[in-house]
Amino acid sequence: MSIQHFRVALIPFFAAFCLPVFAHPETLVKVKDAEDQLGARVGYIELDLNSGKILESFRPEERFPMMSTFKVLLCGAVLSRVDAGQEQLGRRIHYSQNDLVEYSPVTEKHLTDGMTVRELCSAAITMSDNTAANLLLTTIGGPKELTAFLHNMGDHVTRLDRWEPELNEAIPNDERDTTMPAAMATTLRKLLTGELLTLASRQQLIDWMEADKVAGPLLRSALPAGWFIADKSGAGERGSRGIIAALGPDGKPSRIVVIYTTGSQATMDERNRQIAEIGASLIKHW
């Protein structure tokens, strides 16, 4: 067993022997301040990774656009098919120029040779490549099948209805392509620590998230040296922004954090800054 596999296998073990965790309302004060600064709703939840206990939450059962955070769930569904012998990570998928959609920095470079399922998941999570996500959605049967996968996990809230990039439209009061912070946090925890996926697939999923290259201005910008984070960000229309993450000190994750916002007129930089400040408060009061 590799060191990384050992780390993920012992996530519940280490967490069980940690000192009790206590909620700190100071972080919620910052979440509410972010709402004021952005002029928009902000949803927040913080779960203990081992027990699933909610440590703090704000608007945990209000719907927010998922945006690209759905790509972690998508690759979880792909990995479940791999575990069941219905898919192979090494299978190569070929596609054409007509398949390319807006923001496809990886797939646009491989029109000639195609990409493997493993490479597509890596591109979808680490670079948020939209064509990679659409190609992977095709392998599982489309958005409705991802929703069905989530329902089978016990998540009857999260739903995907459309493809990239239309799913980022974020129309107010439109339930399409949305989740709730509580539902997303619980589902992410199941994917990373539950028995739904094999140990190898859980490790692969967290490795992809740990290698995320496009979430630097968010929670990662607030992390002290030595902290662990595996995350996936999302951005959408109407001032929408979000991030889902597993993080913790001492090089291992111990909490799940989900943050979503929508309806702001603020710039992307300002949305990023507010999420980073929430992260800084979380870490300060850990």
Rank of each mutant, 00 (worst) to 15 (best):
P25C: 03
P25A: 10
V29H: 05
K30I: 08
E35Q: 10
Q37G: 13
V42M: 12
G43H: 00
Y44C: 05
Y44P: 01
L49C: 09
L49W: 09
N50K: 05
S51L: 01
S51K: 01
G52F: 06
L55D: 12
R59L: 06
R59I: 02
E61M: 04
M66R: 01
M66K: 00
M66F: 03
M66A: 02
M67D: 15
M67L: 13
M67Y: 13
S68I: 01
L74Y: 03
A77D: 00
L79E: 15
S80T: 07
R81L: 07
D83E: 10
G85D: 15
G85F: 14
Q86N: 14
Q86Y: 15
E87H: 04
Q88V: 15
L89I: 09
R91N: 05
R91A: 06
I93D: 01
I93C: 04
Y95D: 05
Y95Q: 01
Y95I: 02
S96W: 15
D99Y: 10
L100N: 06
L100Q: 01
V101E: 04
E102A: 03
P105L: 15
L111S: 10
T112I: 01
D113M: 07
R118C: 03
C121E: 04
A123L: 15
I125M: 02
T126K: 00
S128P: 03
S128E: 00
N130G: 15
A132L: 01
A132V: 10
A132I: 02
N134W: 09
L135D: 09
L136R: 05
L137R: 15
T139I: 10
T139L: 06
I140D: 10
P143I: 03
K144F: 14
E145I: 00
L146K: 15
T147I: 04
F149W: 12
F149Y: 06
F149I: 04
L150C: 12
M153E: 11
M153A: 10
D155L: 12
D155T: 09
V157N: 06
V157S: 07
T158L: 05
T158E: 05
L160R: 04
L160E: 05
D161N: 12
D161A: 07
E166F: 13
E169I: 06
A170Q: 07
I171Y: 07
T179M: 03
T179P: 01
M180A: 06
P181C: 03
M184V: 07
M184C: 07
T187S: 14
T187H: 12
K190D: 14
K190W: 14
K190I: 03
L192A: 09
E195L: 01
T198R: 08
A200T: 13
R202K: 10
Q204T: 04
L205F: 03
I206R: 12
W208E: 14
M209C: 08
D212N: 09
D212L: 03
D212V: 13
K213N: 14
G216K: 15
P217E: 03
P217T: 12
L219N: 09
L219D: 13
L219E: 10
A222Y: 11
P224Q: 03
P224K: 15
G226K: 00
W227H: 03
F228I: 00
A230Y: 14
D231T: 06
K232A: 14
G234A: 05
G234T: 09
A235Y: 04
A235I: 03
A235N: 03
E237Y: 05
E237Q: 05
R241W: 05
A245E: 12
A245N: 08
D250A: 05
K252D: 02
R255P: 02
V258W: 01
I259Q: 11
I259R: 04
T262N: 12
T262A: 08
S264A: 04
S264R: 07
M268Y: 05
R271N: 04
R271D: 05
R273P: 08
I275K: 13
I278A: 11
G279P: 11
A280Q: 10
A280T: 10
S281Q: 07
S281I: 01
H285P: 03
